[in-house]
Design a protein around this nucleic acid. Structure first.
Lengths: 206, 206
DNA sequence: CCTACCGATCGGTAGG
DNA sequence: CCTACCGATCGGTAGG
């Protein structure tokens, strides 16, 4: 996304460096928000790492919140795209559910820093901006709910399962990952994903 | 717990009111941390609600962090006691697992405000104080892990399940509750607990 | 992007 | 608990 700062540009030649710098800014902000938390992180921290003055950040942003929005929107878009890809594979609902769980876990682990900021700081955004990103009916949950309904229509998922509650249940264990997953640690993302997927399928299968 | 402020007391008669006021302080702090998040919450906010001046809080505390510690320690102790009670019932591992999941979900939902502060702000505490509370090997997880091992010893839980990973999986969906559970909403705590428990048991049973 | 700056607020303290 | 206060830092701005 383009910087939400002023739209006026001085000269043609300046355009490209600015976009580049902007993505650096977002990257640094992601890291700092991850390390300190959004509230505790200061624009000073971010400016320091970029080697510029705090006030200069306002050439790129209008408020600190813009940075958080950008970070969260980025991971969320990516995660959503990933989920949609996984869901639309040509297979039965149970097999797709399996793939979705594995793929979602892997996405979160591979994007641990930005995922953490997303999951931990989402409610630091005002309700409107939050909703702008995840939608009224939390996008991930909506997709998972549909998938479970598909499974019930196919007769491969138990009838007495509430699709919405099951979706929240599945997402919960995945969304908690950022609190304990350690890259290169005891469990690989793939192992975690496969185990979670096995358990989920076993729990819900008709 | 007693206030971590100065231990000196002025006169005998003052003692009781002080303890009372201290518990009011903790209660108000819990609420404010819940509403604004620990970092964004100011001692001013807390003092205002108590009708005292910000500086006066230092009669009861030494740092803002003391309040967070107290809040988190309180819920954690309660939750741990609850878990231990549930675990030690005289029944098979699978039945106890069921009770533990239901009871834990209910505890979290019934103590939503303080649970939220605990789960969301735990890492705002420095590592030593955090560890003082949850222990080196996160207490809840340790207990659950043992329970699952018991189940494997009894032969009622699948052998190929990693007890630790399963514990993290179970706790994850429960720990995410505070992000979506609404008292009086679509699902009651009991319903959520029973569903989660059914699914977990179904997933792990031999 | 820098210079130069602001008002507001923060956690915390000395002394009573 | 109050009075009175501090240094530090915060997000943000005007003007170039």
């Amino acid at each position: 996304m383009a910087p939400p700062g002023r739209t006026a540009r001085r000269r043609g030649a300046e355009r490209k460096p600015r976009e580049k710098r902007w993505s650096e800014l977002v990257k640094v902000a992601t890291q700092v928000f991850y390390e300190k938390g959004y509230e505790a992180a200061s624009l000073q921290d971010i400016a320091d790492r970029l080697g510029m003055l705090k006030g200069s950040l306002y050439y790129y942003i209008q408020t600190k919140e813009d940075l958080l929005y950008e970070v969260i929107n980025g991971v969320h878009q990516g995660g959503l795209r990933n989920l949609k890809t996984l869901m639309s594979k040509d297979a039965g609902a149970l097999e797709r559910l399996r793939e979705v769980v594995i793929g979602h876990v892997e996405y979160e682990c591979e994007n641990l820093v930005s995922t953490t900021v997303f999951l931990h700081e989402l409610d630091a955004l005002p309700p409107e901006r939050r909703q702008e990103i995840v939608g009224e009916d939390h996008a991930y949950r909506g997709l998972l709910t549909e998938l479970i309904e598909d499974g019930q229509a196919e007769g491969v998922i138990k009838e007495d399962v509430s699709p919405k509650l099951a979706a929240l249940w599945i997402l919960g264990s995945a969304n908690w990952l950022y609190r304990w997953y350690v890259p290169g640690g005891e469990f690989t993302a793939r192992e975690i994903g496969e185990q979670f997927a096995d358990w989920v399928v076993r729990a819900l299968a008709a």
